[in-house]
Design a protein around this nucleic acid. Structure first.
Lengths: 217, 217
DNA sequence: AGCCACAAAATGTGATCACAAAATATGGTT
DNA sequence: AACCATATTTTGTGATCACATTTTGTGGCT
């Protein structure tokens, strides 16, 4: 499917770079970006940037405002609840599907990711925390071996990602406690219901935390 | 969000044209398309076509093969089941959400769409049938007023669309009977469970029908 | 200062260009 | 005829160009 050639196209590099910026909060809502500006930042011509922006717009990660500028789509309380709703439908499902493919080796990997995530949280390294949290969830989700559901969930993360950072910036990260450990514990006990519940709890907790910042939504 | 100007950009026209082709089976799997070829067909330069292809690739409606040609993504039995699974999770949910916004006027509209769909089916007008079926479902889904879920479901329809046509071409359309009437009946009775079940039955029936053609998957 | 008309700069869009890589066509050899 | 090396054409990619539209900057007026 993808280019087997190991040299990535400029297009692909640009896409990944922008995607990361969005997902881990380097690209905040409100600001208006220009294609030429992004192109210069990334050191490429406007062409691959335009294509990347179209691509990310299709994934609902970016929007083209009528004043022909690129930005993170506006969040409303309603849209936020829609994303939360969709996540609650899809992610526990994906987690459950993944479970049969999770062995002790994977569990250790997850515990390791979680430790690093906690460290980042403790040290106030926000980006590290967000990356760790992403890794934890998608290490699980990828093991469901279900590309269709996975790509739907990826789109959802791209949609709330920028707001996660924004809120954490304001409220700090202290009040977050960690459902990941509950999840790994359930995996060790092969407790399917417990695992699914932990994922749901984690999700609910995170979204409630973001949603608490009424001023933004 | 979109251009308020009523003159659509070439980009948007191109996107809509290609999207329709995919959704209603004018673009069949297996064939390899070139950007310049598509551009000439649509009477535009390669530029907007490239951007459209990126966009539709992000929606999983097209794929860029490693021989750098555009095509409908290959279908496998596994992927087909994944799509079916995702549809069964999301579409009944969307239908249920829509129900409170469906009044008698909408019900009549749905009955009307269904009649036209039946006529098309009877006359062997395959594209008419597919368009009618799409209209029926998305007239309902849009009334859920949930853009997040809606865009996820749209991506799913783009993924199985091309194969629907392909199979109908081979097996004919005779064996399809109509769950849409069951659905509208349930709406008239304000029977929530019955409506949800009818949507699920319709979906299952359609997907089973496509999936029956083992040779394709 | 605040406001408005107007000029200058910047932007998105679509087409085109240049080039390397891939696909296809060609022709000679067995 | 079947095969393979080579030449030709086609293709995707990234950059650039041209232009209409929008944004931004400027200076005069109240």
């Amino acid at each position: 499917m993808e280019h087997t050639n190991n040299t990535l196209t400029v297009n692909e590099t640009t896409y990944r770079a922008l995607r990361e910026k969005i997902l881990f909060g380097e690209m905040l809502p409100g600001r208006a970006f220009t294609l030429r500006g992004l192109a210069e930042t990334l050191g490429v011509s406007p062409t691959p940037v335009r294509e990347t922006v179209r691509r990310l717009t299709a994934e609902r990660a970016l929007s083209l405002k009528d004043n022909r500028r690129v930005s993170i789509p506006d969040m409303t309380a309603k849209r936020f609840q829609e994303i939360r709703h969709a996540r609650l439908i899809l992610e526990p499902e994906l987690a459950t599907l993944a479970m049969i493919n999770i062995d002790s080796k994977i569990i250790n990997k997850l515990i390791d990711i979680d430790k690093k995530t906690d460290t980042a949280l403790f040290e106030g390294d926000l980006e590290g925390y967000m990356r760790g949290n992403y890794d934890f969830h998608f290490t699980i989700y990828r093991l469901a071996h279900n590309k269709v559901l996975l790509s739907l969930v990826e789109s959802l993360w791209l949609q709330f990602g920028p707001y996660m950072r924004l809120v954490y910036n304001r409220l700090g990260t202290d009040s977050l406690d960690d459902q990941h450990r509950v999840a790994t514990k359930a995996l060790e006990d092969n407790d399917c219901i417990g695992f699914k519940n932990a994922i749901m709890e984690d999700l609910q907790q995170g979204m409630t935390f973001i949603g608490a910042s009424k001023t933004l939504l």
